[in-house]
Write a protein that binds this DNA or RNA. Structure first.
Lengths: 345, 345
DNA sequence: GTGAAAGCGCTAACAC
DNA sequence: GTGTTAGCGCTTTCAC
């Protein structure tokens, strides 16, 4: 049987289609009795509004596009990271009866800009959520801005006063983690930096330096190694900082994957964690609880951030894209088993 | 500026909108010269067809819904598992200019059936891809079937002749893995079963038994422990089979998460892998290469399966939903470092 | 409070 | 080969 239309409902309820439309869209100015009649007809006919028709007439696709770097293309976002984002975005979409379209892409491709431009023009979504590191690439942001589609940047690394973004307190919380390690008695705390393209991750390095300062510790370049956010790079960075005279007793990695790499190095080389070496990460992805011992890390409120971003796009109440500026959802320390007091010499 | 419509293009090219429509949809019966003119106008105006209008007129949403169990709700699908599925589905969608809508849900909820029914009726997608374990729940499958929406079951565990499904050779390949372990000299090979709801995972247990038979080994219930697909359950299952007199020298887990749990147990208890214990998993999720030593496992061609499922929904050529029956995409053994020859006594 | 009429931008069916 | 004419099912505008 063909699906019931707004006309069928109107006929059955003995009203005009406009009234049905009002009821469906929860508009005011409908008498309760009328509303009742219409609702009865709706459920009797099992009526559901046709989205395409609604979108065509209202010039609103009722659709959000979530754009992020493809976990397969490189090792930037881990699968758990993406899933968390999707969950937050979906939560917001569902509560407002919007649909979510996902669009992973390769941030390294020359054409991301035009690819996303075409996407926005083709779909004409209600809004776009742009995840890091795409959110901190001027070419990408510029391309989307040019289409006129409303968009929110997730963790752009550096806020723009003229756009709307949602971030977390990377720098502050990283300082706090560093202070925590120092409070355990660690004097030589190494840091593994993350991927170049990812500005938000770079902020964590600044936080590390802040933390050293706050704890009265001296910064040493020899206690810093660079990674690219991947587990292997963490493993190699661990080798670099641990195979030298100035040997750290704690390592703080800019993300969990690299921290897991550090633990893998420790395991291979018979170094006890946290007995001989404390390890801390950042993000709190699933992996953090799968490694042994479970990883002390910084819980990044990714789902909440994505949810807030979508809300800003679709909700009239609450913070709105048009407001510009940055909304900060603070992260928190997750103390687990991979960190402990410094060993007596 | 408002977006160009098909009328603008027709005007500029000096043809009718129908001709423009033909060019856009790559229909035949258009002279090359005319096509050329239209294409020029299209790019000059940067014209993109309005999807809502197209869908409304053509009664096709050009949209696929991917339904799977929410990784957050329980520990059934790991994030990597979901991402792989999404990637395959997206690949197929993009090549055909379809959009993908994701819909994670909780398979344990009483209302999944009606939830999915409402979804299908509301969106009226071109088709639905239903992942395991939802794909093997009669209530869920029945609800979707009732809407009349075309759908494909992913790994339903047991094939139906009256529906279309895409599966992998769980049983055969698990037998092969068991034989491989036996070929390394292992005589006592334990198995950790997976989650009840997941029929496809149960097939792996059958494959394990087949493999024992093929290798001339005897099945013993004491070498079997049950898990629920989660890492912790694998850890507990390892404890069960290893803390007994009939101690296995190899453990084959029905998925990678549980295999990682086994390795975690081994690590905690000073058991060398693969020196004293060989460990094998199934799925080949990212985690398999993140644990140390890297996990020998069965590579499940999840992306390929999802891609094939979507193709069946949208592509006229190639296998089509209407064909019914099951398409099998074979898995393969991934030999890594967690398995080795049995230790001399 | 409610309704009538006019589209939204496209495809389908059929004419030429 | 190409064009004309009707809708698709809804929202919008404005009248009452």
């Amino acid at each position: 049987m063909p699906r019931a239309t707004i006309n069928d409902v109107a006929d059955l309820a003995g009203v005009s289609i406009k009234t049905v439309s009002r009821v469906v869209n929860r508009e005011p100015h409908v008498r309760d009795a009328t509303r009742e009649k219409v609702n009865t007809a709706i459920s009797k006919l099992n009526y559901r509004p046709n989205l395409s028709a609604r979108n065509l007439a209202s010039h609103n696709a009722h659709l959000i596009i979530l754009v992020y770097d493809d976990p397969d293309a490189y090792h930037l976002p881990s699968a758990g990271f993406v899933i968390k984002m999707q969950q937050g975005a979906l939560r917001a979409c569902r509560s407002a009866n919007y649909e979510l379209l996902i669009h992973p892409c390769d941030y390294r491709s020359k054409d991301v800009g035009s690819e996303l431009k075409a996407l926005a023009e083709q779909i004409r979504p209600t809004g776009i959520v742009l995840a890091a590191p795409l959110s901190n690439m001027p070419k990408v942001v510029g391309a989307i801005e040019a289409t006129g589609a409303p968009f929110v940047q997730l963790s752009p690394g550096q806020e723009s006063r003229s756009r709307f973004s949602v971030t977390t307190n990377d720098r502050e919380i990283s300082a706090k983690m560093t202070c925590y390690l120092a409070s355990l008695g660690h004097k030589k705390i190494a840091f593994i930096t993350g991927h170049q393209a990812h500005k938000a991750v770079a902020n964590r390095f600044e936080g590390y330096k802040d933390g050293l300062l706050q704890s009265g510790l001296k910064f040493s370049a020899r206690l810093v190694a660079s990674g690219d956010n991947s587990l292997v790079s963490g493993e190699m960075a661990a080798a670099k900082v641990l195979e030298q005279k100035l040997r750290p007793t704690a390592i703080f990695a800019a993300n969990d994957d690299m921290a897991a790499g550090v633990m893998r190095y420790a395991y291979k080389n018979g170094i006890n964690v946290p007995g001989q070496l404390s390890v801390a990460g950042c993000d709190d992805i699933t992996l953090a609880q799968q490694v042994y011992p479970a990883l002390t890390t910084i819980r990044q409120p990714l789902a909440a951030m994505a949810e807030l971003a979508v809300m800003a796009l679709i909700d009239k109440s609450g913070p709105h894209v048009s407001a510009k500026g940055a909304k900060v959802v603070p992260g928190t320390l997750q103390l687990r088993e991979s960190t402990g007091p410094v060993a007596a010499d």
